[in-house]
Computed example of a mutant assay.
Amino acid sequence: MTQSSTEKPAEKKLSFKFNAQSYALIIALMMIVLIFGILTGGEFLSSRNLSNLFAQMTVIAVLAIGMTLVIVAGHIDLSVGSLAGLTGGIAAILQVWFGWDTVWVVLAAISAGALLGLWQGWWVAYRAVPAFIVTLGGMLIFRGILIGISNGQTVAPLNEGFKIISNSYLPYSVGYLLALVGVVLLFFSAWRNQHKRQQLGLIIEKPIKIYGTLIVYTILILLLTYMLNRYNGIPVPLLIVIFFGGLFIFISNKTSFGRYIYAIGGNEEAAALSGINIKRNTLSVFVLMGALAGVAGVILTSRLNAASVSAGEMYELDAIAACVIGGTSLMGGRGNIVGAIIGALIMASIDNGMSMMNIETFWQSIVKGLILIVAVWIDISSKKQSSVSS
């Protein structure tokens, strides 16, 4: 009786902590939106600006999705900005100079990113070179390759088929249909999860709490769809983020590979003793990160309708900041994809809002730097408190 009574408060405490962290992130985003909405006289919340905001955050969001797994595994990747620039440059060169079709260009860019990620992962996993050094070298190498293959020129313009990747919108009816499908999937997933927990004899949360939260999400989804449809519709790049976000949420939560990554980042020695292949899984993480950098490069080049030698500069820092703001621990073993995407949206909102207020660009860097420092401090403080309480 004594043991069971001490376990229940611990469960409630952990549950409350998780919910508090999740809700704090959403509240922070809503506060940022509200502040910029007031300071810009409502322009920040206009349908046109929201559409532009979601289109702008897609590159960092895609990079942050891959970076989450890298950081959870206990590593870091400083090369993703240069790799996105290089893969975007490869795509532009193949199409503009060699006349390749858009489909093959996209596949070539993603494949190049995966191969270069494989190369970096080999050094980290099989040669035990710290990821910080390998990817720092990769950042310089990839930028140098881009300058070399492009002869320092801006490569443009691209075909219409390539430009529509980042500059097209869904028809209004299709947007509402996808929103309704998403809502149905949310409710079905919640019901299925509760049903499984009941079958396994696990604790089930109160239905009013679960479905009340889902109703709030439903209202937000439909409201956002309505706002975006008031302009040109849902931007296609936003769908790309949702697709890869959903895919990697499934990978991280529902596959053995995802569980292995969290185990490696949490305690590598214990993971090795459990029979997990550390080297192979670490290599796979960098391959996935490289492939997503290729996706980000394609999106960026399509949006700009050009590839330049400066494309993707400093994007690696924005991606890392998005992950940390979203709750990913730089110590490894903890993080989630949804938080990283919200973190990317927060970073994009700060850039967008301050630009609309005509604040000089150096202030944007200062503010984002301070936010990153505070986010890491919060992460370290929470770890100290949890260790003391335990």
Results as ranks from 00 to 15, higher is better:
residue 183 V to T: 09
residue 232 N to C: 11
residue 172 Y to F: 14
residue 202 L to V: 10
residue 182 G to Y: 01
residue 206 K to F: 07
residue 258 G to V: 02
residue 178 L to V: 12
residue 189 S to E: 05
residue 255 T to Q: 00
residue 205 E to K: 14
residue 202 L to C: 03
residue 232 N to R: 13
residue 134 V to S: 03
residue 174 V to K: 06
residue 132 F to G: 00
residue 242 I to T: 09
residue 147 I to A: 12
residue 157 P to G: 04
residue 165 I to K: 03
residue 215 I to N: 10
residue 147 I to Q: 14
residue 149 I to S: 08
residue 130 P to S: 10
residue 193 N to G: 12
residue 162 F to D: 00
residue 134 V to T: 10
residue 158 L to E: 00
residue 179 A to Q: 10
residue 135 T to Y: 05
residue 179 A to R: 03
residue 231 Y to N: 15
residue 188 F to S: 12
residue 249 I to K: 07
residue 149 I to R: 04
residue 191 W to D: 07
residue 156 A to D: 08
residue 210 I to H: 03
residue 144 G to K: 04
residue 128 A to E: 10
residue 184 V to I: 14
residue 139 M to V: 07
residue 193 N to K: 12
residue 177 L to H: 10
residue 208 I to M: 15
residue 173 S to F: 15
residue 126 Y to C: 08
residue 253 N to R: 11
residue 171 P to K: 05
residue 183 V to F: 08
residue 240 I to R: 00
residue 236 V to L: 15
residue 223 L to C: 10
residue 203 I to M: 11
residue 151 N to M: 13
residue 260 Y to G: 13
residue 141 I to P: 02
residue 159 N to M: 05
residue 243 F to E: 04
residue 234 I to Q: 05
residue 235 P to F: 03
residue 222 L to N: 04
residue 258 G to E: 02
residue 137 G to W: 01
residue 202 L to D: 09
residue 168 S to R: 01
residue 223 L to E: 11
residue 166 S to D: 07
residue 161 G to E: 03
residue 213 T to W: 13
residue 180 L to Q: 08
residue 142 F to K: 05
residue 166 S to W: 04
residue 243 F to W: 01
residue 151 N to S: 13
residue 254 K to G: 05
residue 209 K to V: 15
residue 260 Y to H: 15
residue 151 N to Y: 12
residue 157 P to A: 03
residue 236 V to T: 11
residue 232 N to V: 13
residue 159 N to C: 01
residue 210 I to K: 04
residue 212 G to Y: 08
residue 177 L to V: 13
residue 179 A to V: 11
residue 212 G to L: 05
residue 225 T to P: 09
residue 163 K to T: 13
residue 257 F to A: 02
residue 183 V to E: 07
residue 147 I to W: 10
residue 230 R to K: 14
residue 224 L to S: 09
residue 133 I to L: 11
residue 132 F to K: 06
residue 212 G to R: 07
residue 228 L to D: 05
residue 146 L to G: 12
residue 183 V to I: 15
residue 139 M to A: 09
residue 155 V to T: 08
residue 169 Y to R: 00
residue 215 I to C: 15
residue 240 I to T: 06
residue 188 F to R: 12
residue 254 K to V: 07
residue 237 P to R: 00
residue 216 V to A: 13
residue 209 K to P: 00
residue 174 V to E: 08
residue 168 S to A: 12
residue 167 N to P: 02
residue 206 K to T: 09
residue 203 I to Y: 15
residue 192 R to I: 14
residue 258 G to P: 03
residue 170 L to R: 03
residue 130 P to W: 05
residue 262 Y to G: 01
residue 127 R to Q: 12
residue 205 E to H: 13
residue 142 F to L: 06
residue 125 A to V: 11
residue 259 R to S: 06
residue 198 Q to N: 13
residue 247 L to Y: 02
residue 173 S to T: 14
residue 214 L to I: 11
residue 168 S to Q: 02
residue 181 V to W: 11
residue 253 N to L: 11
residue 257 F to D: 03
residue 174 V to Q: 09
residue 255 T to C: 00
residue 142 F to M: 06
residue 170 L to E: 03
residue 238 L to V: 06
residue 260 Y to F: 12
residue 230 R to S: 14
residue 223 L to W: 11
residue 257 F to R: 04
residue 152 G to D: 05
residue 125 A to F: 02
residue 239 L to G: 09
residue 184 V to S: 09
residue 225 T to R: 01
residue 211 Y to Q: 09
residue 133 I to G: 04
residue 201 G to T: 10
residue 136 L to N: 02
residue 257 F to K: 03
residue 148 G to Q: 14
residue 256 S to P: 05
residue 128 A to F: 09
residue 258 G to C: 01
residue 126 Y to E: 02
residue 209 K to F: 15
residue 260 Y to P: 08
